[in-house]
């Protein structure tokens, strides 16, 4: 059963990802991206990381997609067709990407992974304790730094998007 769900999710993600990078209508490619992100959340649910799947759905599908849609609507005319690269360049890029996929896959398949059979389930409180622990391997410092980064990002975004004063 999980096998079938995984294959359906994988097929959906690949098809929508290809559509998202080749569609010539801006808004449609954003919506295709939304399906790819939801597929990633589905994979997180399948491997039993519920908290991560919830973060993926709220931050990506809820936040980033809405942000990109807003910027598309502010910046584009809705029926504008996008300009694409020259066909020669597209083919060269596609061939380069296929070579890259080949190299990556031969590397992955020739490596022997020590897979541990397990059915651990991680609770949200485990993640919280690890995130706030001072011990060896704890993540308190990055956690505090990232809050400063988010604050700086907010101030920077407001200052940049406000622009110059009209005089």
């Amino acid at each position: 059963m999980e096998r079938i769900i995984f294959y359906v999710l994988a097929l959906m993600m690949i098809v929508f990802a290809i559509n998202a990078v080749t569609s010539r209508k801006m808004l449609r490619s954003v919506i295709y991206l939304l399906f790819v992100l939801s597929g990633v959340a589905g994979i997180f649910f399948l491997i039993d990381y519920n908290f991560l799947a919830a973060i993926q759905l709220t931050v990506y599908a809820g936040g980033i997609i809405v942000l990109i849609i807003f910027s598309v609507l502010l910046v584009h005319h809705i029926e504008l067709k996008l300009e694409m690269a020259k066909p020669v360049r597209q083919i060269i890029t596609a061939v380069a990407c296929l070579i890259g996929i080949g190299v990556f896959l031969t590397t992955i398949y020739s490596h022997q992974f020590n897979v541990v059979n397990n059915h651990y389930s991680t609770t949200t409180s485990d993640i919280g304790f690890k995130l706030l622990s001072y011990d060896k391997g704890g993540f308190i410092l990055p956690f505090e730094v990232i809050s400063v980064v988010l604050l700086a990002m907010m101030i920077g975004a407001i200052v940049i998007a406000k622009g110059k004063k009209l005089e």
């Binding site: 994988a10 993600m13 690949i14 990802a17 290809i18 998202a20 990078v21 080749t22 801006m26 490619s29 954003v30 991206l33 790819v36 990109i68 910027s71 598309v72 910046v75 996008l82 300009e83 694409m84 690269a85 360049r89 597209q90 890029t93 596609a94 990407c97 296929l98 890259g100 996929i101 990556f104 896959l105 992955i108």
Partner: peptide
């Protein structure tokens, strides 16, 4: 699956001519 997704992203990054598409 993740390798294929990564290279689809690289393909879009190199062929698109629009800042928002590159962001996607």
């Amino acid at each position: 699956l993740t390798t294929i997704l990564f290279f689809i992203g690289v393909y879009g990054f190199l062929t698109r001519r629009n800042l928002i598409s590159i962001l996607i």
